[in-house]
């Protein structure tokens, strides 16, 4: 009984949160429109958390994702100003993400710097670069092509509800695509299984013939390209780009993966669990805002909920 409570405690907590909001906000919370809304609001975070899972599986993490998100948005913005077509500018921004990820990978795997130090250093490099190429300014207005900012406003039409059209937002679709891709890679390829083996015991993995250095190198590319994509999604959503707008994604993204880890049986990062963590954070933001909870109190409560769930999980792991 206690074992199963431990096992499912996290899930029950999440259900309790949703049930609480559903009861407190009977007319507005569990509506198709609001739920679709939440998926759109968390879509950028979902992409960051899903790709962050790839490196966290190995016991690593990447602090540079927020700065990379900002940088990618600014790169696209600057290229828009110079008249680049949208697909090319977007492609270039994603390429910047790939290069940044490979840089992180080289530093962590080949050079052997601790991920905390290596990605902290690249965080400041990416952030500084974003300031340099944007001149510290926000790129907005006519400089942002309508087709780019329109992407975040559009979606797959689902029909009419209460005289207003309901759509599955494009940003949600992108996030689902990324989550699905990461799920396939981690759960259904030998590549993913090797990453989990590295996370289980790096030395044993190496002795078993797994090419640890090469795998760690490549895994960081996922994180940075995911971050760049999230940065582009943010830029599309706010129809502007500035050198700090993605920064907040890093801490919340890592928090979401940790929240998700409390849901898995062995306490390992799993991408679907990370997605659940993202949804909890999104639901809390949405629900508490609707309940008119003071925004500062809201931040404190979100932090406490993360601590509580991760703490409970840690305690139950120790007792095992």
């Amino acid at each position: 009984m206690t074992a199963s409570l431990r096992r499912y405690g996290g899930v029950l907590g999440m259900v309790a949160i949703v049930a609480f909001f559903a009861l407190s906000l009977p007319d507005t919370f569990l509506t198709a429109r609001n739920l679709l809304n939440i998926t759109q609001q968390v879509s950028m975070l979902a992409v960051v958390a899903a790709t962050m899972t790839v490196v966290m599986v190995m016991g690593d993490f990447d602090l540079s994702v927020g700065a990379m998100a900002s940088l990618a948005g600014v790169v696209a913005g600057v290229l828009f100003v110079q008249g680049w077509p949208v697909p090319l500018a977007v492609g270039a921004a994603l390429a910047v993400g790939l290069v940044g990820g490979l840089l992180n990978g080289i530093l962590v795997s080949f050079v052997g710097i601790l991920p905390f130090v290596a990605t902290l250093a690249t965080l400041t490099i990416f952030s500084g670069t974003a300031f340099i190429i944007s001149d510290g300014r926000t790129i907005f207005g006519r400089d942002i092509p309508a087709s780019f900012s329109g992407f975040a406003r559009d979606g797959l039409a689902l029909g009419m509800v209460d005289g207003r059209s309901l759509a599955l937002p494009n940003l949600t679709l992108v996030a689902l695509g990324v989550v699905a891709l990461v799920w396939v890679v981690l759960e259904h390829t030998s590549y993913g299984r090797r990453l989990y083996a590295i996370g289980g015991n790096r030395e044993a993995a190496r002795l078993a013939g797994i090419r640890v250095v090469q795998l760690r190198f490549s895994a960081f590319a996922f994180t940075a390209v995911g971050a760049a994509m999230a940065g582009l999604m943010t830029a599309s959503r706010v129809a502007s780009a500035n050198p700090t707008q993605g920064d907040g994604l890093m801490l919340t993204g890592i928090a979401a993966v940790f929240l998700g880890m409390t849901l898995t049986r062995d306490g390992q990062p799993r991408v679907l669990a990370s997605l659940a963590g993202v949804m909890v954070l999104g639901v809390l933001d949405n629900g508490l805002t609707q309940m008119r909870v003071d925004s500062y109190l809201r931040e404190v409560m979100v932090g406490l909920i993360i601590l509580t769930s991760v703490g409970v999980s840690a305690l139950s792991q120790r007792r095992r």
């Binding site: 007319d27 429109r33 707008q245 949405n286």
Partner: peptide
């Protein structure tokens, strides 16, 4: 009136999310 002051601490994208939440809330 009941006034709900929402600060997103510098996050402009979150302003959009909070506007959407307030629209949902009616």
């Amino acid at each position: 009136w009941n006034v709900n002051v929402i600060d997103t601490a510098g996050d402009v994208a979150a302003v959009i999310s909070r506007i959407e939440d307030m629209v949902t809330q009616g």
